[in-house]
Design a protein around this nucleic acid. Structure first.
Lengths: 204, 204, 204, 204
DNA sequence: GATGAATGAGCCTTCATTCAT
DNA sequence: GATGAATGAAGGCTCATTCAT
């Protein structure tokens, strides 16, 4: 029992550190932020941090992993295929909405994933790139399904198209995280993306 | 005469340092790269660097400024308006091609502009963001023209649409810089973007 | 309790660093001395120094402030006025003796206050100059009292006379700190100063 | 002939550099001043300086040597002995006046001799100290003469008294150089010093 | 378990000096 | 003779990480 309580406490501490680190990394940037800044934000000794994370880099990893897992959920919750253009449109809307919601809830994550992670080291960048690639692969998969079923046009480079759609979604995500876009704006971002995708991809 | 020769030499040295810095910054990242690395790459003393640039940050600024100027040329060389959907399509193609060419010629610049610059400090990030915003404004302007002339649909958020187009172009640019895409791939990227834009925006 | 012990330790460390810095600054000079020299003298890492003082200059400031405070005590412990030439003579003796004792105990301080401080920057110099000025003002004040009470001659420039007395005391101080003067020498220095002052200032 | 002209030119250049160095060293301080600052002040290349002086330290040496020589003149022009208290008083006045004039003409020298020189290295400090000692020895010599001839009291430490007189003169010199004392002030400084010395030393 | 004192690798930057032109 | 480009020693300072308490 004590063990369980202890485990919960540990988990809580790890979580608290992560939250503080998100705040610190997103406001000062990974390189300018010090481990001591994170500890200060929590009112704990900075040595304590090292009892929960191997090092500064490890904290960032944890943030990133958690965020990427959250983002991965977006596609994993989707049915692997749709049966009509309208179905696909709705799926696209759900995915975009879901993705935007993550960053609307915690806009600081956008800076961490899209800016800081890209300049720490090869591994961090690869980690994000890999997620984006996987996301794009899902998208490509949806499109292949649409082509196979005939509701999307065949003469496209599915991979590239998927990457462009992904880029549009990510762009909207960044803008929503960065700016002060409200719910109506989010609807518009989705609407504009849908226009491009449906208009650009639909068969005939 | 001596003065002219000297000025040329100085310009050459500044250029050499910039090139070495591009290599070093893009391969190790701004933060991990030292001024000494740049000097070593050139086989000169690191003190010499400071005769040509105020400090490490100043070198990065120069790289960024040069690159953004090059990118700004892309839209500044374009006519401010087009008269038909086909004209617009061609303009879009030119812009995308031009932009991709810059990074195809020196792919290292992509990492510098899109990754490193975002994590150095507020100023560097703002500098890139501002360029992107201006670029998107040009795009928005082209679209307003199309709406006014009736060859683009009126029911769009011009600003958002412009930003999404910009995001697609930048995405293609990054991919071309990062990957080993050849001329054919570049054609395809353009083609896919055109499909999205024309399909998604055209009237009727 | 732990806190108190900690505070004591911190105070001790600050004191140790100050002592080492006095040694290093007085033997090599402020400019030639490195923070690493101070750390080496203590057998500690140089980074440790920065936990106790903001920077090299701050260490010097602390030494100087401490010394000037000690010197300020000399006059602040004196009664503001005396009633006879003999009283005044005795006061002068006390002041000179007190001042000389400070530097006899730690001769290295003389170099720091009178030589190094003068060449670090405007602020350090002003700091010493200000102290000297205040000291001279006290002296001038004592003299005005003597003139008012009639035991010192009226036809003098009190400010200048005070500055000259101060200069004599400081000169003796420097000589005592620099040389290997013993107790007897100190008595003589005092005696000679008294001769000048009493002989030069006494009324009638 | 060409040689003579050349020698004159060289001498002129050395002199110009010295003057510029006096300005630069006295305004920024020896350590903060760069060789380039001196060259800039003259509008010449900083490499040129090294054709006239071995190094930065050598320039300072030259300034100091020149100044000390000038100061040495003050006592060397004096008769080795005087025959009455009044003669001695007049000699003292001449010496003080002469010394003050040097620094009134070029107040920048005060900072160089009394402040900067003390913190460069052992040699520079020794150089100034040696001059002061020699100056004090002359003064002591004058006093021994006075004691021998009976117009100065015998019960004094001639060396210390001489050093105190020297200190007073140097103090007045510094004040005159630092402040904006006019001719009348200079007279007063002399007057106050005389009062101390004559009052403090005269026999009976 | 928590703490924060200690550490030193590492990096930017300055500037006196040299020397090829 | 004059120049200023090049150099690299030198040093101040930061901060991630360790570990004794």
């Amino acid at each position: 029992m004590a063990n369980i309580a202890s485990k919960e406490k540990i988990a809580q501490r790890r979580y608290d550190i992560l939250q503080a680190a998100i705040e610190v990394f997103s406001s000062k940037g990974y390189h300018s932020a010090g481990v001591a800044d994170i500890a200060n934000a929590l009112g704990i000794g900075h040595g304590t941090i090292y009892r929960y994370y191997k090092n500064k880099r490890d904290i960032f990893n944890a943030i990133l992993a958690e965020l990427l897992a959250q983002m991965a959920d977006v596609v994993q919750q989707e049915p692997p295929s749709t049966d009509s253009l309208d179905d696909y449109r709705q799926q696209l809307e759900r995915i975009a909405a879901h993705m935007m919601r993550i960053f609307q809830q915690d806009p600081r994550l956008a800076r961490i994933a899209f800016y800081e992670a890209m300049s720490i080291d090869e591994e961090a960048r690869a980690s994000v790139d890999h997620f984006i690639a996987v996301f794009a692969q899902f998208t490509a998969h949806y499109m292949k399904n649409g082509v196979d079923k005939g509701f999307l046009r065949a003469n496209m480079n599915q991979s590239m198209a998927a990457q462009l759609i992904t880029a549009m979604i990510m762009e909207a995500v960044k803008k929503i995280a960065t700016g002060k876009d409200n719910e109506a704006d989010i609807q518009q971002w989705k609407s504009e993306i849908i226009h491009f995708v449906i208009g650009g991809l639909s068969a005939g």
